[in-house]
């Protein structure tokens, strides 16, 4: 009976893992994402909402897991420039996600926005 219980636990762990994989975000093109991310703030700066075209949050401001959480929740409030963020397509968002995630603080190549 104890073995049966262990089997159930193992099966449930596999199930949870599979669901996790299914919900994982699909990353886009990080090179394109870098351009799109900077373009957002260039446009926002030209519109007059921010005083600098430099993105306010660098990729290395968060860990990869934190970036994943931000993009899973689509919670972009901290980024400001709502008009520009709202106009981004799903593909644009996944490109930006790829850039931020791949250069996060715990990535092999952490990056700051120069």
């Amino acid at each position: 009976m104890f073995k049966k219980g262990l089997f159930i636990v193992t099966a449930l762990i596999f199930l949870f893992s599979a669901v996790g994989v299914t919900f994982a975000l699909e990353k886009g093109n990080d090179r394109k994402g870098k351009y799109t991310y900077r373009k957002v703030y260039k446009a926002c700066n030209e519109r007059g909402e921010v005083n600098s075209p430099k993105p306010p949050i660098s990729p290395d401001a968060k860990t990869q897991a934190q970036w994943t959480r931000v993009f899973e929740k689509k919670d972009f409030a901290d980024f400001g420039c709502k008009a520009e963020w709202d106009s981004l397509s799903e593909a644009d968002l996944m490109d930006i996600y790829a850039y931020l995630h791949d250069h996060a603080a715990d990535s092999p190549t952490p990056a700051k926005c120069k």
Binding site: Q66, D78, C81
Partner: peptide
């Protein structure tokens, strides 16, 4: 959440 450098209130 890690410290985030956000510009002035958007």
């Amino acid at each position: 959440a890690a410290p985030v450098q956000v510009a002035a209130d958007a």
